[in-house]
Nucleic acid binder design. Structure first.
Lengths: 348, 348
DNA sequence: GACACGGACGCAACCGTTTGCATTAATGGG
DNA sequence: CCCATTAATGCAAACGGTTGCGTCCGTGTC
């Protein structure tokens, strides 16, 4: 039912190739013809079929963006930034959600592979080797993880965790818990490494709790454990967990920051809205989204996989840029001085 | 570089049509041949190119989901529900975000049209006539809006608004404000109509403020106005605005629910996390997402637009089911009895 | 033993584009 | 006036699949 290039050709009395050129190489067609063709196209409501075009050009002008969980407020700003950047370059972004599930993740990238020119893998839960494997099938840029040989854009959560721990040390805390993130998360590993080192350096004791689901529920579920552990401060894998934990502690009668200090990571919009406002490590998610799109587009303008391209003899100089974005500690109201010893309920 | 159907045919010594059938009609090929073909395919890492297949079958097995703003927590649960339902039916969902912009919305649906079998238009900001127009180009199911002749799934926000107003009346409030939603929102209109009627019926005065951006910022910006208006209760277009308003009022020294009662709409996860916890009208977003997917898939199994289909002579019995989902008032802590008159700061 | 039948597979057209090349007409130079 | 050049367009082969139809072969029936 929708008009094809042939309908337009018929209507304007030219060959389909002329119609095609009218759209993809206007300078090759006589201005008079051009206006006539355009008029007919307009008339018939013709729009080039991008899928058919992609079949032969090898470029869909789509990019895929795979995230762990759309419902996590961390992702939307990144998604929006990526979409905006892509739109500038005349690309569209297809977003898909994996529910934190590594196998759904793999399925998705395969399903997407042929319909997009490249995929942004955001906070992947797959193994590095699997990522490398899919990257042979479709150009990939990895966000929030480092994998050798692949272009990555990372946020320096290590530095962020260190800053957070030092902030807590400065407030006098010596018994600190780290609420670990989900299994398979690179960010979680980096945080753990950096936090451990920083705590040790400051003569503090760091208890690691996890892995956990990186959600409010995941954080809330740890309240009891945090209380029992006798720590006076907590660094959570992300803001959602931090907020969940604060809720949970509150239900148990522990007050933040009076009894326990809590630091999150991400600086999601929500962290400014809760009471107390959350002290957190801000990550430059929008920048990350834009950068990743740029890298991906750069990547596959370097190595055209065009159908009739004469072999990508460009060699293996895979650009593999890896960029590390700075993070920043934002101190708000969920952290405070260590409570005076001996008056809390832990009895330790 | 990726293996095509021809590579597999060559490798297994059969014609490409046999390979094709191995995947799309296995019962038509000899079991022995089948296993051989499958083995070769596996070997070469062959995956059928869905785009190419779509070109001839007319079915992409993708559906598009267009939302106004991914960053609005109202949408993610709906998106996830739709994705899940689609996955069951072997469909993929492509999500796109319009930034609340009607023209971006139109562009998007056109860009998507040829790459999907149908589009879910969620809370569209376009005009009804535009929606009808695009619905001639690609099957459409509309969510959160009623447009004649098109399948729609709506939430009964009218009833919700009425319940909210009656709740407030019951608490003694007689001067109530309605924080309107964005221009072009059907939901906003419905709420306004129902709230006005309910208020009048209860002998209360309803002030409408808006239209506004349906975000926290949008809500916060109205705090001053709300205060000046001397109302004792507010019904906001959505939870985000309600939360923003509460923040704003707080900054101005008005306390919720002591000085002003606030009701939101949506029951986003966040509304349980703020202090005070938000009284709100819960909307069945997940059900809506699932229902919409079902309706869309139903729709285009009825009216195949297959390339070699002999004309969609199915006539105009367009199913146009329209379903209205019930909403429910959830009373939490942001509403309370009307303050004793004469002791507030408004002086009116 | 002729025949109908059905299973398995090959053939080739087709989906809606793009694009290298051939063709044609118009133009300019010598 | 002829030839080379260029601009504008047509031609047809791709891209990676699907599918109606035809062919071939083996089997069972009368």
């Amino acid at each position: 039912m929708p008009a094809t290039i042939r309908d337009v050709a018929r209507a304007s009395g030219v060959h389909i190739s002329t119609v095609s050129r009218t759209f993809s190489a206007p300078h090759l067609v006589n201005p008079e013809t051009r206006v006539r063709v355009l008029a007919c196209a307009e008339d018939l409501g013709y729009r080039p079929n991008r899928a058919a075009r992609a079949l032969i050009t090898g470029r869909t002008h789509n990019i895929g963006l795979i995230v762990a969980d759309i419902a996590n407020p961390f992702f939307p700003p990144l998604i929006k930034a990526a979409e905006g950047q892509a739109r500038h370059r005349d690309y569209h972004v297809f977003v898909a959600d994996t529910n934190e599930d590594p196998v759904a993740e793999e399925d998705l990238v395969h399903a997407l592979a042929k319909q997009v020119d490249g995929v942004l893998l955001c906070s992947p839960r797959m193994s590095n080797s699997l990522i490398e494997q899919v990257s042979r099938e479709v150009p990939v840029v990895v966000i929030n993880r480092q994998v050798a040989g692949l272009p990555c854009v990372m946020m320096d959560v290590g530095q962020g965790a260190r800053a957070a721990i030092e902030h807590l040390l400065g407030l006098g805390h010596r018994r600190i818990a780290l609420l670990g993130g989900p299994r398979g998360s690179w960010t979680a590993r980096e945080m753990r490494r950096a936090a451990t080192a920083a705590a040790r350096g400051g003569g503090a004791e760091l208890t690691v709790l996890g892995p956990n689901q990186p959600t409010e529920t995941g954080g809330g579920a740890l309240a009891e454990q945090v209380r029992r552990s006798g720590v006076t401060a907590v660094l959570a894998y992300n803001d959602l967990m931090a907020i969940g934990l604060i809720e949970g502690l509150d239900a148990l009668g522990s007050r933040v920051p009076h009894d326990v200090s809590v630091v999150g990571v991400d600086d999601i919009a929500l962290s400014r809205l809760t009471r107390p406002k959350l002290t957190t490590v801000a990550t430059p998610t929008a920048v990350a989204g834009r950068t990743a799109v740029d890298m991906l587009l750069q990547l596959d303008s370097d190595a055209p996989r065009g159908a009739r391209g004469r072999g990508a003899a460009t060699g293996d100089r895979r650009t593999t840029a890896q960029v590390m974005l700075q993070t920043e500690l934002v101190v708000r109201d969920s952290t405070g001085p260590v409570p005076a010893p001996g008056r809390d309920g832990t009895g330790a």
